[in-house]
């Protein structure tokens, strides 16, 4: 099925696409058909900067298990870092 639902957040950071590094401005997250992964549905994340064109994109297509493990890993990595670093001004 096509789920149509797309979560979108504003982003600050950088991504490395086919033409090198670029500043990110948004991230979209959705569970739907992949373009490449051999699965019926995947958790897809697009790190994008639409201001630089549609090709300014870093894409991943993850199985649900991998996606959940990634969420846990991100939370763990952030929790393990000193709060002074993750909550400091400019860390956002």
């Amino acid at each position: 099925m096509c789920t149509y639902l797309t979560e979108k957040i504003e982003a600050t950071g950088s991504g490395k696409g086919p033409d090198g590094w670029f500043p990110l401005s948004e991230v979209t997250v959705y569970f739907d058909h992949p373009a490449h992964a051999l699965a019926d549905h995947t958790l897809n994340i697009d790190f994008r900067n639409p201001g630089r064109g549609p090709s300014a994109r870093v894409a991943v297509e993850l199985t649900p298990r991998t996606a959940r493990a990634l969420v846990t890993a991100i939370e763990s990595a952030l929790a393990a870092a000193p709060a002074a670093l993750t909550e400091a001004a400019g860390a956002g």
């Binding site: 797309t6 979209t28 994008r48 994109r57 894409a59």
Partner: peptide
């Protein structure tokens, strides 16, 4: 695929 991502967003 980039176009699909852009349209979806």
């Amino acid at each position: 695929d980039d176009a699909a991502a852009a349209a979806r967003a």
